[in-house]
Nucleic acid binder design. Structure first.
Lengths: 192, 192
DNA sequence: TATGAAATGAACGGATTGTCCATTTTATAA
DNA sequence: TTATAAAATGGACAATCCGTTCATTTCATA
């Protein structure tokens, strides 16, 4: 039958709204963006906006979720032993490809949920075995250690992003690996 | 002369506005707070609010700045060799005393500027000498390392804050020191 | 080409905003 | 205690944005 849901019209409308939001966020903060302005920029009717999103925050959140879904897809397609190689590089590539959005999500709005969720999964998977082997008892300390490593990695990526990728993704992956080398620094920590 | 500026009336007005904002932020997000609601909560005339602040974000920012000024005061009063002992403990105490505000600034809004500025100063002062002594040439890598350590420490404090201070400030200071032990882990990093 | 989903334009009542001003309150110096 | 000027109040204002509705038009697809 004719008139099927999920037309490319919807895709276009959502795309132009996303692009326009990113453009406005170059000069404004998210709380200064009005739906009216956004729709004027996108040349989309305000009623159409409300047919898809609740407000500007809802739109930004959906963009974040799409990015996260992409990352989850990478995670599920990668074996654990490749987390700090191919997975990390893939994620860094993804960040580079979506730099405008990522700058806002990671640096400006500081809504780290995205990368934090990601790294928490990755490091939990990578570090937990080491923890269990180490014979260390104190799980609270171990959890702090994970937070430390994850927070540190995010900070590195933020700096890389903010300085417009001075290193290639492969180079940065190496840096992250050497700075956070789990084995050595966790060993140093457990030794105490 | 009578009618001097800086009365305690102003101090009271600002205080009640700050308290009311914190109260509203218990249940709402900052972008859901209207000046109208805030003033109703504080029982302050809306015109009075605008005499002191631009909007709710401006108020929150001024609260952040006051906290930061307090921290800077600590820093300037502490010799570098006490950065990871008394200074760190003082800052942790300050965070504990202002837990409602800090939860919002550090955990919810993720506006890490505050602690980041602080730790950057502290670690720059503490790590720079070690870097110079180490003979390491690559300053870019060193800067990433600093970001890593600072980001890691902030992440630990965030977790501590979010879980309502399960450890004492002294205990957490010890944890931070052992996890991030500069010498050992930076050494491990430089070795590579 | 026919069809129905999606976008448009226009309108609405309601709420918030930022800025007035005349008036009242009150902290402070004398 | 009292006079004074700063600060807070209450009320009003136009302007903007909000969220929703509805009749109409556009357009992607079978």
């Amino acid at each position: 039958m004719a008139g099927v849901k999920g037309n490319r019209r919807i895709l276009y409308t959502k795309k132009v709204l996303k692009d326009s939001l990113l453009k406005l966020l170059e000069t404004k903060d998210i709380h200064q963006v009005t739906v009216t302005n956004l729709c004027k920029e996108a040349d989309v009717n305000r009623g159409t906006f409300y047919a898809h999103y609740k407000d500007a925050y809802d739109l930004l959140e959906s963009m974040e979720n799409e990015l996260f879904a992409q990352v989850v897809q990478y995670i599920e397609a990668t074996p654990v032993e490749q987390y700090f190689n191919s997975l990390l590089i893939n994620v860094l590539e993804l960040i580079k490809e979506n730099k405008d959005l990522c700058k806002i999500l990671l640096c400006r709005q500081r809504d780290n949920k995205l990368l934090e969720k990601l790294f928490f999964i990755a490091y939990k998977a990578g570090l937990e075995p080491i923890f269990k082997e180490s014979g260390e008892q104190n799980e609270a300390h171990f959890n702090y250690y994970i937070k430390y490593v994850v927070g540190g990695c995010i900070a590195i990526i933020q700096a890389w992003l903010q300085n417009n990728f001075p290193e290639s993704t492969e180079e940065l992956a190496k840096i992250i690996n050497s700075v956070s080398t789990m084995a050595s620094s966790y060993h140093a920590y457990v030794q105490k």
